[in-house]
Design a protein around this nucleic acid. Structure first.
Length: 354
DNA sequence: AAGGCGGGGTT
DNA sequence: AACCCAGCCTT
C-alpha cells in the first residue's frame, strides 16, 4: 500500500511501543511460539507469570517434547483453553521429530504444526525471523476495522476476509518484526476497545471511523445468545488416610485431559449420593456433608457446581483404577486442575462463598 | 459457516 | 452481568 500507514505506525512504536515484554528477551522461535500460544484469547498481564514459569521448566523445545503431558498441563492450570497445552506439547514433538528440533521459517510449514493457525504462524515468522507475514489478532482487527470502517462482526467469514486483505496490504517489507509488534501495541494501548485515545494515534488523520466520529461502531459486536444453565454434583471423596479421589477428564471437551472431581448426575438427590457412590464407584461412604454450591461460567454455558464431601468407610482401593486415582492433597495441587476445582480442593468453604 | 473451548480483567 | 482478550480446531 502506498500510504503512510506503516511508516507512521513504526515512528509511533519507536517512541511509545512495548519493547520489554518477557518474550522479547532471548528471542528465539521457541519462546516466540510459546508466548503466541499463551496469548491466544488471553491478556498479556495474565500470561506473563505463566510464561516465566513455563520457560523455567521447559527451556527448550526438546525439554517440552520430552516432558509428560501431565507436567505440561499442570503448568497450564488456570490459563484455560487447555487444548492449547495439549497441542503445544504435540507440536513440540513434531518439531523435534520432523524438523530436527529447529522451527521452520516458512509460514505454510508452521501451519502444519498442531495449534498454529494463520495468524500465529505469521506472528512467529515476523517476530522470530523478521520475515514478511501479516498477522490478524484481536488488536489488529480492531485497528483495521476502525481505520477502514469495516462493518460487521469479525467472527463472520466475509468480515474476516476483508480484514485479512487490509492486513496483508498494510504489512511492509522492512522492519516487519517491529511493525507486527507496533500494530498490536497500538490496539492494546491507543486503539482500545472502549475510550480509544484517538488524540494520541499516529493514524488519526486517515482513520475513517475517526473521521465519521463512529468509533463505537467498529468492530461490529458479536450477536448475543443466552447461555444455558447446567448443574452437577461434584464429590470430594476422602479415604481414611486423607487422600482425595480425582478423575481424569476425557482428552477432548471441557477441561480435556485435566484432573477433576468425580461427578454425579444432578437428577439424584442428596440422599441418593451414598448409593450412587456405591453403584458407580464401588465405594461405601459415610453420610455426605453438603458444601454450598457456586456457579462457574464458561464461554458458552453456566455450570452450577454442587459440592459434597464424603468419607469412604470401606475399601478405597477399588476405585484406584482407570481414570480414577487417589491423591494426597499436596500432590493433587501439583496436577493440571481446572481453576474452580483447584480452588475447591484448596479452600472448599471459601470457594462456596464466591 | 458456525460453534466448542476457560479464565480473568474491564466496564 | 456482559463483553473482550496476541485464535484454532472440529463439525
Amino acid at each position: 500500500m502506498n500510504d503512510a500507514f506503516a511508516d507512521r505506525l513504526l515512528a509511533w512504536y519507536d517512541q511509545h511501543g512495548r519493547h520489554d515484554l518477557p518474550w522479547h528477551h532471548d528471542r528465539n522461535a521457541y519462546r516466540v511460539w510459546v508466548s503466541e500460544i499463551m496469548l491466544q484469547q488471553t491478556q498479556v498481564t495474565t500470561v506473563i507469570p505463566y510464561f516465566e514459569a513455563f520457560m523455567q521448566r521447559f527451556p527448550t523445545v526438546r525439554d517440552l517434547a520430552e516432558a509428560p503431558e501431565d507436567d505440561v498441563l499442570s503448568h497450564w492450570s488456570g490459563l484455560g483453553y487447555y487444548a492449547r497445552a495439549r497441542n503445544l506439547h504435540k507440536a513440540a514433538r513434531q518439531v523435534v521429530q520432523e524438523h530436527g528440533g529447529e522451527f521452520p521459517d516458512d509460514q505454510e510449514i508452521l501451519e502444519t504444526l498442531t495449534g498454529i493457525g494463520r495468524s500465529t504462524a505469521a506472528a512467529i515468522i515476523a517476530q522470530a525471523f523478521n520475515k514478511r507475514a501479516a498477522i490478524l489478532d484481536g488488536n489488529v482487527k480492531r485497528v483495521l476495522a476502525r481505520y477502514h470502517a469495516v462493518p460487521g462482526w469479525p467472527g463472520k467469514t466475509s468480515v474476516l476476509q476483508e480484514l485479512w486483505q487490509h492486513a496483508e496490504a498494510h504489512t511492509p517489507t522492512g522492519r516487519v518484526r517491529d511493525y507486527t509488534q507496533a500494530i498490536m501495541d497500538l490496539g492494546a494501548m491507543v486503539c482500545t476497545r472502549t475510550r480509544p485515545a484517538c488524540g494520541d494515534c499516529p493514524l488519526q488523520t486517515d482513520c475513517l471511523a475517526r473521521q465519521r466520529d463512529e468509533l463505537t461502531l467498529y468492530p461490529g459486536s458479536k450477536p448475543r445468545k443466552a447461555k444455558p444453565e447446567k448443574t452437577t454434583w461434584m464429590l470430594i471423596l476422602e479415604d481414611t488416610e486423607g487422600r482425595i479421589l480425582l478423575e481424569r477428564r476425557p482428552p477432548s471437551g471441557i477441561w480435556g485431559g485435566l484432573w477433576s472431581l468425580p461427578e454425579i448426575d444432578p437428577a439424584h438427590g442428596i440422599d441418593e449420593l451414598q448409593e450412587a457412590c456405591d453403584r458407580t464407584l464401588g465405594l461405601s461412604c459415610a453420610e455426605p456433608e453438603l458444601i454450598s454450591g457456586f456457579r462457574h461460567t464458561f464461554s458458552h454455558y453456566h455450570l452450577h457446581i454442587r459440592p459434597a464431601r464424603l468419607t469412604v468407610t470401606g475399601d478405597a482401593t477399588v476405585a484406584d483404577s482407570g481414570r480414577l486415582r487417589w491423591f494426597f492433597r499436596d500432590k493433587a495441587l501439583t496436577l493440571g486442575l481446572p481453576a474452580p476445582i483447584r480452588s475447591l480442593i484448596t479452600e472448599p468453604e471459601q470457594t462456596a462463598l464466591l
